[in-house]
Computed example of a mutant assay.
Amino acid sequence: MSDRASVTPVDAALPRQIADAYVDELIGHDPITGTLLGVPDGDDRLPDFSPDGQARQAELARTTLKRLTAAEALPGADSSREQRCARLLRERLTARLVMYEAGEGLREINPLDSPLHQIRRVFTVMPARSVRDWVVIGQRLRGVPAALEGYRVALAEGAARGLPAGPRQVASVIGQLTEWIGSGDGGWFAVFVADGPQALRAELAQAAAEATGGLAALRDWLREVYAPAVRGAPDVVGRERYARFARLWMGADLDLAEAYAYGWSEFHQLLADMRAEADRVLPGAAT
C-alpha cells in the first residue's frame, strides 16, 4: 500500500486525501481490489467474506464518511476538484452501506459476479511471469478454502435471517462449481497452475488441489443444505432490491417507472424506424 495516508493526518486531510486513505485501508481488507488496482502488497491473500469481514468494511465506510464530513469544513475543501471527489466518495460509500445494511452480502449468489467468482477471476489477472509470481499465486491458492468458508458462513447467516438467494441462481452456481471442480483433469485450478514453472509444479498442484477441495466443500453444502433450505422461497427480487442495485450501479436514485417508460418508448421508436427502413428495402414485407 502507499504511504499517502501517513503524509497528512486524516483529521487534517482534504477530501482527496481522505479518499486516498480510504483506498489504502480498503486494500487491507480486500486484497482482490488491491490486485485489480496494481497494488501487490496483498497478492498472497484473499478477502474475509464472512459476516465479520463484511462488518469491518462497513465500519471503514462509516468512519471514512465521518472523516469526509470533517474534511469538507477545512480551508481548501471548496475547490471544484475537492468537491467532486467528496461527492463521488460519499455517493459510493453510502450506496455500499445501503447494500450492507440490507444484508445483500449475506445472499450474494448469482452465476456472474459473487465472492466465488471474484476469487477465481483474480488469479487470471495476477502476474505470472517469474518464479516469484508463481510462489505468490500458490500462497493465494492456499487461502481459497478459508475464503470460501467465510462466504459459506455469510450465506448461512443470511438464510437464518430470512434473506435467501434465488433457487434458480443457487442451482446455476452449483452447476458452475461442478464444472470448475472437474473430473479427470483435476479442475479449473489444476489446469491453471499447469503453466507454472517446473520447479514449483508439485507445490502448485497441491495448492490447486486444496483450492479445488474448497470448491467441492462449498458445492456440497449448497447442494445438500442451502438449496433445500431456499427451495420454494418467495420472490427474492422485487422493487426494493432492484432499486438498491440500480443505485449501486448507476450512482443515482432513479425513478424506476420513468426509466422503464423511457426505455419502452425508445424501443417502440426504434422498432418503428426498423420497420420503415425494411419497407424501403422490401415494400410490404415488414411485420
Rank of each mutant, 00 (worst) to 15 (best):
I119W: 09
P167Q: 05
A160F: 10
R120G: 11
T69I: 11
P164R: 00
L88M: 09
L106E: 09
R62I: 12
P127W: 01
A77T: 06
G162F: 04
P111E: 11
A160N: 05
V131P: 01
A171D: 14
A61N: 12
I137F: 00
G175D: 08
E108P: 02
A86R: 13
R129E: 15
S114K: 09
T69E: 13
V125S: 11
S80H: 10
E104D: 04
A61Y: 10
I109L: 13
E101Q: 08
E108H: 10
G138S: 00
P115L: 14
P111V: 03
R67W: 12
E72F: 01
N110I: 08
D78G: 09
T64P: 04
A160Q: 12
A159G: 10
P145Q: 08
G158N: 06
V98H: 07
P164V: 05
T63V: 11
E104A: 01
S79G: 14
G158K: 06
Y151L: 07
L68A: 09
P164H: 01
D78N: 14
L60V: 06
Q176W: 12
R96Y: 12
A156V: 11
L155F: 12
L89Y: 03
V135L: 14
A165K: 02
H117Q: 14
R168Q: 14
D133P: 02
E149L: 11
A77N: 06
F123V: 12
V170R: 05
W134C: 10
P75K: 04
R67A: 15
R107D: 05
R84M: 10
R92S: 14
P111K: 00
P115I: 09
R120N: 10
R132D: 15
L106A: 02
M126V: 09
T94W: 03
A71G: 03
L148E: 03
E104W: 03
V135A: 15
P75H: 10
D113I: 13
L141K: 02
P145H: 01
R121H: 07
A160T: 02
L65N: 04
S114I: 05
R67S: 13
R168G: 13
V136T: 09
G105T: 02
G150Y: 00
E101C: 06
Q169T: 07
V122M: 01
R92H: 13
L88G: 13
M99A: 15
N110F: 08
L177W: 10
R62F: 11
V131G: 05
G175C: 11
R161P: 04
D133G: 03
A61C: 10
L148P: 05
G103L: 00
V153R: 11
G150M: 02
L163T: 04
M126E: 06
R140M: 01
R152H: 09
Y100D: 15
L141Y: 00
A71K: 01
V153D: 07
S172G: 10
G162S: 02
I174N: 08
E72P: 08
P127C: 03
P145E: 07
E157K: 12
L74Q: 06
R121E: 08
E157C: 08
A159V: 13
